[in-house]
C-alpha cells in the first residue's frame, strides 16, 4: 500500500467518524425540534427567583398629642400603649408580607434616628425602637439569634439585619413590625415622621 493510499484511508476513517457524530447530534436535535407524534409529552419551564415584599399595613400614625405635665417623658407604641401623654392609641403594627417565590433575608433601615426623628433630651432622651415578630407562625424561619424576634431594638438609621430567612409559604409569610417611641417633654413641637425601608434579598443557605 502506497503512502497516498494510507493517507486516504486515515482521512476516510476521520470523515466517517465525523459524519456519524454529526448524524447522531443532528438526529437528536431534530427529534426535539419537530412535532414528532408520541403518546407522551413533556412541558417544561424555568421559574426565575423573584424577591418581592409588600407592606400590607404601611403606616402608623399616633396623631397629635403632648407629654403630660407631671412626667418628663411619654412612651407610645403600636401595641396600644400611650403612657404619660395623650396621643391616640395605635394597636396595629406594620405588616410585611413575602409575596415572592423565594425565601428572603430581611433588613430594615429607618430614615432617621431618635434624636432627629423626635428630639429633646429630658427623661433620658428620645428612643425610636423597632420590634419584629411573627404575624403568622414561623414566618421568620431563621431569626438572627434566639432573642432577635420579639425584642425592641433601637433604630440606627442604617440597614439592620432582621430575619435571616423570611418564608415565602403562603400560610407563614407575614411579619409584624412594631414601633416604640419615647418622647421627652422638651422635644420640639411639630409634625414628626420617619420612613422605614424593608429590603429583601434572595436567601442563600
Amino acid at each position: 500500500m502506497s503512502s497516498n493510499n494510507s493517507a486516504l484511508l486515515v482521512f476516510a476513517i476521520v470523515v466517517l467518524v465525523l459524519a456519524l457524530g454529526n448524524l447522531v447530534v443532528t438526529i437528536d436535535k431534530v427529534g426535539t425540534l419537530t412535532g414528532r407524534a408520541s403518546d407522551t409529552a413533556t412541558a417544561a419551564l424555568e421559574l426565575a427567583p423573584a424577591a418581592q415584599i409588600d407592606f400590607i399595613v404601611d403606616s402608623i400614625n399616633w396623631g397629635s398629642g403632648a407629654v403630660d405635665e407631671a412626667p418628663t417623658k411619654a412612651n407610645i407604641n403600636s401595641e396600644g400603649a400611650v403612657i404619660g401623654g395623650n396621643w391616640t392609641a395605635v394597636s396595629q403594627g406594620l405588616t410585611l408580607q413575602n409575596n415572592g417565590n423565594v425565601d428572603v433575608t430581611l433588613s430594615l433601615t429607618t430614615s432617621n434616628v431618635a434624636s432627629a426623628f423626635i428630639g429633646g433630651s429630658a427623661g433620658g432622651g428620645p428612643k425610636y425602637e423597632l420590634k419584629v415578630s411573627n404575624s403568622e407562625a414561623s414566618s421568620c424561619e431563621v431569626p438572627l439569634n434566639s432573642t432577635n424576634l420579639g425584642t425592641y431594638t433601637e433604630a440606627t438609621g442604617t440597614a439592620q439585619a432582621t430575619c435571616k430567612k423570611f418564608d415565602k409559604t403562603d400560610a407563614s409569610d407575614l411579619l409584624r413590625i412594631d414601633v416604640n417611641l419615647t418622647i421627652p417633654e422638651d422635644a420640639d413641637p411639630g409634625a414628626k415622621s420617619s420612613t422605614i425601608t424593608a429590603t429583601a434579598i434572595v436567601f442563600t443557605p
Binding site: F55, W62, P189, I196, A200
Partner: peptide, 17 residues
C-alpha cells in the same frame, strides 16, 4: 429580581406645651 425594597411610614405630631 434578587432584591426588593418597600417602604412604610411612622408619624405623630407633638403639640406645643
Amino acid at each position: 429580581d434578587y432584591v426588593d425594597v418597600n417602604h412604610a411610614n411612622v408619624a405623630l405630631v407633638i403639640a406645643k406645651t
